[in-house]
């Protein structure tokens, strides 16, 4: 092994430190900003140390918008969506990866085609459908439409292709039924990609904005990002401290989830790239 010179090492570290600060600083400032008063937020040079206004901002926020209800709605929608989407994508991906049936390729192409449709195109038909079902202001209006999404199915299929078919055949010979093969063999071996898809789905649904904004019209039924965005409007007094405090709350679940699943996440993302 060649020994890297001290200079290149230092340059590399310096670069990494700069990149690190650049990516962490906005988050850091969000935390700091949530502890400042509104006029301190706009100070230049910006204040870099937290002050004691966080609880004030939070109570102010809770008074002007039902944030806790919004947080609850967001959690309910995101958790149910993530669990259900994982299960459905896994079972569909499994079918596409390991079963031979008539029209399989056509069906797979159809599933992939839904990925090519821009969301804006389906917005109004979907809206009419959901209104027709009477689901306005109800969580299933956000949970159901994107459940078995093409990306998830494709992602799980690619990962499941690398499971040796011999393993499944061995289970069949031993007398296991198809459903229990899926639950006892397939699901446990695909934990890393499931975790990766789980995080992706969670983040996607957690930050989902346009559709909840349109379909969850009551403040009591809508999600946290939508609530926060409504606090900002041109020509009106915006309490930025409160908005930042709300933003801090809104990223906590994502951070917790990421820390918990981090090791699976990295493994899962690359899972399908090399066939074993």
């Amino acid at each position: 092994m060649k020994k890297t010179s001290l200079f290149t090492k230092m340059a590399a570290y310096l670069f990494l430190i700069v990149v690190c600060i650049a990516s962490v600083y906005p988050f850091y400032w969000m935390f700091v900003g949530s502890t400042l008063t509104d006029s301190d937020i706009f100070q230049f040079p910006p204040k870099l140390l937290p002050s004691g206004e966080f609880m004030n901002n939070l109570t102010g926020l809770a008074a002007s918008a039902p944030v806790w209800k919004g947080l609850g709605n967001s959690l309910l929608i995101t958790i149910v969506f993530t669990i259900a989407t994982l299960y459905l994508c896994a079972i569909a991906g499994y079918a596409f990866a390991k079963f031979e049936f008539k029209g399989k390729n056509v069906m797979f192409v159809v599933v992939l085609l839904t990925m090519m449709l821009p969301a804006q195109v389906t917005l109004i038909p979907l809206f009419k459908m959901v209104i027709g079902l009477g689901w306005q202001n109800q969580p299933q209006a956000v949970i159901l439409p994107a459940l078995a999404n093409a990306f998830g199915v494709f992602f799980m299929r690619q990962n499941m292709m690398s499971i040796p078919t011999e393993m499944i055949e061995a289970a069949r010979i031993d007398g296991s039924g198809e459903i229990s093969i899926f639950h006892k063999i397939i699901l446990p071996t695909t934990l890393p990609p499931l975790a990766a898809l789980g995080i992706l789905s969670f983040i996607q649904q957690w930050g989902n904005y346009l559709w909840p904004l349109i379909i969850l019209q009551e403040r009591e039924s809508t999600t946290l990002p939508v609530l926060l965005s409504m606090l900002v409007a041109p020509g009106q007094v915006v309490h930025y401290g409160q908005v930042l405090a709300g933003t801090v709350i809104s990223i906590v679940p994502v951070i917790i989830l990421f820390l918990l699943l981090q090791k699976y996440f990295i493994a899962g993302i690359y899972g399908g790239s090399v066939k074993g």
């Binding site: 809206f127 009419k128 209104i131 306005q136 346009l210 041109p234």
Partner: peptide
């Protein structure tokens, strides 16, 4: 009376006006 909090970009009301319902 129920007040629906919408956004200044009208994303909330335009689909309903275009769809003719809701």
């Amino acid at each position: 009376v129920e007040i629906l909090h919408s956004d200044t970009g009208y994303s909330k009301v335009t689909p309903a006006l275009a769809a003719g319902s809701g």
